[in-house]
């Protein structure tokens, strides 16, 4: 159970022979993730951690019945790699790569829409359904199978909160990083809907940050449709000055848009709980 990735996931790794790709592939396999093939143009026919490497996504998908891709390809070549995955009819594509130009991401998203594919990221730590499947770079020891669904725009802040949830014995159903870039595929509203339908998920944590308006859209969704499961949020960046990128390319207040205050107010208006500090999230979950 959980959402997007699980026991049924059969993944290929694009960029499997790179330093990051290779290192993370080993960790994912150790976790029990079904990595069925890898792709690196020019390295077809070789093996990486006993996984067959192909020159093209099409061949890898065809020979191994893959349904998901995780992308570690360097930024300059990442767009082409993702477009190849989309055109090979993969429906879930997780893009770990950071520093992809926005123009490339926009093209990726337009193509994904046309082919009805879900892009997670770019610049995401990935997705983990504890005990079943890890497609990402998160430290697996922090996560325990359980009932809380987590969706976040940040990596380490998610680990901070997930670790406490594990310690308190609640565990996580699925934990999803949306990615720190200004233009990302999967968004909060889509994930909230998926968690609502997932039987394993009994409560949801949403971790937002400054920049853009994905949090406001999530608040608006809850305000209009209501939400059937307890929902706790945290928004990072109350102290962030306007016009500065705070680490993530997408964490920037432009003029007066994208402030933490605007997001917090939107959630409060929708009747959604907002934690003041990360440690309050678990306290609120235990109360609900």
């Amino acid at each position: 159970m959980g959402i997007l990735v699980g026991e049924e996931t059969r993944a290929i790794v694009q960029g499997i022979t790179g330093t990051q790709g290779s290192f993370q592939t080993k960790l994912m396999i150790n976790y029990g993730t079904k990595i069925v093939a890898g792709v690196t143009p020019g390295k077809g026919g070789t093996k990486e951690h006993k996984v067959s490497v192909y020159n093209t996504v099409e061949k890898a998908v065809k020979n191994h019945d893959a349904n998901t891709s995780i992308v570690f390809v360097p930024a300059r070549f990442a767009a082409d790699a993702v477009l190849e995955a989309i055109k090979s009819d993969l429906k879930n594509i997780i893009v770990i790569t950071e520093h992809i130009p926005v123009k490339d991401s926009i093209e990726i998203m337009a193509m994904a829409k046309k082919y009805n594919a879900t892009i997670v990221g770019p610049n995401t730590p990935g997705i983990i359904t504890p005990g079943e499947c890890k497609l990402g770079v998160m430290p697996s020891s922090i996560f325990k199978s359980g009932i809380v669904g987590i969706v976040s725009r940040s990596g380490t802040l998610t680990y901070e909160i997930a670790a406490r949830i594990s310690v308190k014995g609640m565990g996580q159903s699925t934990c999803i990083g949306l990615g720190g870039d200004p233009v990302v595929g999967l968004n909060f509203v889509e994930v909230l809907k998926m968690f609502e339908e997932d039987h394993q998920t009994k409560a949801v944590v949403l971790i937002g940050e400054i920049g853009g308006n994905l949090e406001e859209l999530a608040a608006d969704f809850v305000n209009k449709k209501g939400y059937s499961k307890p929902l706790v949020t945290f928004v990072a960046g109350r102290t962030a000055p306007p016009g500065k990128r705070m680490g993530h390319a997408g964490a920037i207040i432009m003029g007066e848009a994208g402030t933490a205050q605007s997001k917090i107010e939107a959630f409060l208006e929708a009747g959604v709980e907002v934690a003041e500090k990360p440690s309050d999230v678990t306290k609120m979950l235990l109360r609900s």
Binding site: S152, R153, S154, G155, T156, L157, T158, Y159, E160, G180, I207, E209, I210, F234, A236, G237, R238, T239, A240, M246, G247, H248, A251, A260, E276, K277, P278
Partner: peptide, 17 residues
């Protein structure tokens, strides 16, 4: 100083809090 944009932002916020 911290690791990860979200964690560092949250650290700044907590200091201010």
């Amino acid at each position: 100083i911290g690791n990860g944009a979200g964690l560092v932002m949250a650290t700044l916020d907590t200091i201010q809090l």
